[in-house]
Amino acid sequence: MIQFSSVSKTYGSGKDAVQALSGIDLTIETGEIYGVIGFSGAGKSSLIRCVNLLERPTEGTIKIHGKDLTSLSKKEVRQTRKDIGMIFQHFNLLNSKTVYHNVAMPLLLSGEEKKKVSQRVADLLDFVGLGDKADQYPDQLSGGQKQRVGIARALATNPSILLCDEATSALDPETTQSILELLRKVNKEYKITILMITHEMGVIREICDKVAVLESGSIIEQGTVFDVFTDPQHRTTQKFVRSIMNDGLPESILNEINRKEHKHIYRIQFTGSTTGYPLLSRVSREFALDLNVLYGNITELQGIPYGNLIVEFIGERADIQRALLSIQQQHITVKDVIRDAG
């Protein structure tokens, strides 16, 4: 478990002081995959580096499994770091060493015996799918393979936490997918808690259980990926969600809606169990309304279906009001599209 309590980080002092983080409260439960998203400069890098004290917070405490890191001696910090693996955007492998040596490095630093090390490295390379690359050098590998080496290296000391610093940002979409799958496997098979920072919402949707949105050094929104994606509160969050959820309306539909200005057009959002409910036909029958579906899509978030329909209600105004009320009572979200402007 990782607990941030009112963590702040300021670089420099006096007039040149830059506040990178302010009052961060965040709890990451054991076994979770937790994503922190933000635009560049939001403070993501500082945040993730506070977990293994590569950056020391100016204020506040960080507890790993209940132990306050900021109160530890240098030696104890180094010991704790062996329990926290880290992978990087630019991999940060030793170019002068073979894949084998790169992965073995954390073990050699701890003075493990050679035989144990070679067995462990062989297992790790098999796990990340690079069993045949032990004698190659990093510059002979592709970006995805380098990140696999990075992951194997991070796992060498059997950590309970893995920090991913923009781990897929330098990779193409296909390689990103395969690395994310590997990270999911790391989480499932080794029960390792993963904290990742990224600016790609797709990464969060793909593997995270929970997400926090960071802006100007503060967390502006956090929750389960499902909740944040289906009901983003803050503008920045909405921007991130819209960047991949495809729930914005296509241009042609928008034009259509604008032409029907004084019509009643609503966005209906179904989540989870309500997606299976025959809502439209029931409403249509019960309130004697005609319903015209203009646009719709259904996606899946964390294995839960999530539907999004744009529906034009045709009928008496009073009937429409009653219908909307009845829909809301089913715990289904309805929003006026024209008033919301998309």
Binding site: N52, L54, N92, L93
Partner: peptide, 22 residues
């Protein structure tokens, strides 16, 4: 590359180890 040194620190290397092994 500074990143290599950062990686070394992250894996709990001592300053001596960072100098002589990285």
């Amino acid at each position: 590359d500074k990143g290599v040194i950062e990686a070394a620190e992250a894996m709990g290397a001592t300053p001596n180890q960072i100098i002589f092994r990285f």
